[in-house]
Nucleic acid binder design. Sequence first.
DNA 1: CGCGATTTTGATCAATGTCAAAGGTGGTGG
DNA 2: CCACCACCTTTGACATTGATCAAAATCGCG
Lengths: 251, 251
Amino acid sequence: MPRRFNRAPVVPPDCGHCRIRKLTICQALQGKRLSIVETYKTGDRILPAGSVLYQEGQSYGELYNLLDGWVALHRFLPSGRRQILDFVLPGAFLGYQPNLSDPMQHGAECLTDVAVCLFPRESFPSLLDKHPELAVRLARLQARDGICAHDHITNVGSRPARARIAHLLLELYSRVHHWYSAADGDALRLPITQNDIADALGLTDVHVNTILQTLRADGLVEFRNGWLHILDFVQLAATGEFDPGAISHSY
Amino acid sequence: MPRRFNRAPVVPPDCGHCRIRKLTICQALQGKRLSIVETYKTGDRILPAGSVLYQEGQSYGELYNLLDGWVALHRFLPSGRRQILDFVLPGAFLGYQPNLSDPMQHGAECLTDVAVCLFPRESFPSLLDKHPELAVRLARLQARDGICAHDHITNVGSRPARARIAHLLLELYSRVHHWYSAADGDALRLPITQNDIADALGLTDVHVNTILQTLRADGLVEFRNGWLHILDFVQLAATGEFDPGAISHSY
DNA sequence: CGCGATTTTGATCAATGTCAAAGGTGGTGG
DNA sequence: CCACCACCTTTGACATTGATCAAAATCGCG
């Protein structure tokens, strides 16, 4: 499995030093209350790019806080097709389902080397009961993910291939840029392949490739070998029906 | 606006008599604790088929518990296309977003006459703070909706039109059947049009029509003028890649 | 340097969209 | 109870997007 991200994933020494805490479920706990979660979590885990965090159809004993790296959520169909449901970035809370003991309804694969911290599933309900702020925070995160999924449905269901691709690139760009910034002068690393884009958008990799070339030829955007260059934001947003203002950046 | 549902929507005299309480967010409150929500809600509302519960882009002062009737969640695109995000049934909690004061990211239209009960948005966070069971319940409902959305993404992104339609019909059938039953001998009222199906699945109404006819000709299913007849469940499930066992019926 | 994974290219074809017009249906008002 | 009308469904001809198959070129890690 190639597609490595040359930087080693970062795991903080303790929750107090967790740089993305305000993005995670733990944001709900301020100051010394952080120890609640600190004593609760059962550890951290580092996974290499290409590995599987959890599999569709299996049950697990943990929940995951994504600390570093990119993860793709997906499903496999009888036809053999892989549908990517979401690209998720650090801060995401993974594995929560209405019934915690149910088998996972989707799988999660690491697009880069990844660091997660682990919460025990079994006692999670009692954690929520004891610390309602966490339940409220969780509801908000779930609601945000829901909006994300609605965006995705809209993109796949309502836009032709060219707009679909433009929209996805802009969405990833804006998420990475806003939360994790590091603007390499409009050049951004997206650890995904053209095939991943195809599987997310309900297209074939061949067609994605063709369209990326027209987008490049038209001077809108360049995406090659994991590097994204936005050449003409305004035009690209227009072809992707992307409204930067519509995204609420306060979760 | 035609497409009426001849039965008048049911609104219970009080929460204790709410027949679908166990499907709603209020399920979290047992016995006398029901009064918490009872004093909290600000009333009920009845809307005719074809009317709008809330609009994309607008802000509202209430949240909604769907008591009776069908609602479609949707978005409109600059192209004029309408994307239906979900068909929602009684028990759903509508309007919740990560920031309650943000404008709604999607609209909600009534497919039948509808009854909702209203919660004030402003004081909702304090309600959750005071009654953590509600926050936990909300998180679960949101998680369930997320799975629903993932199903939808998968359907639209990964299946050809015929399978997409078969899958949607089976999903609606199984939801109605399980939660609200009343099996009219395998004939079921779905208050949606072929155009609604098209807008949900990213197809055109003309194409949906064509395929419905082949499904009928093949003896799999009949859907006409809002009436659904499953003729060959097994075959239909096969063409729709629909796994009845995969749905967890315990929320 | 070499190999597996990715990107690119070209030819062909099936699935789905578009446009336009006719035929049904059920609710509503006379 | 009938007739009308808006909305929904059906039909047909045609256009186009995007899929399929196969092979060559390129990239980047080891």
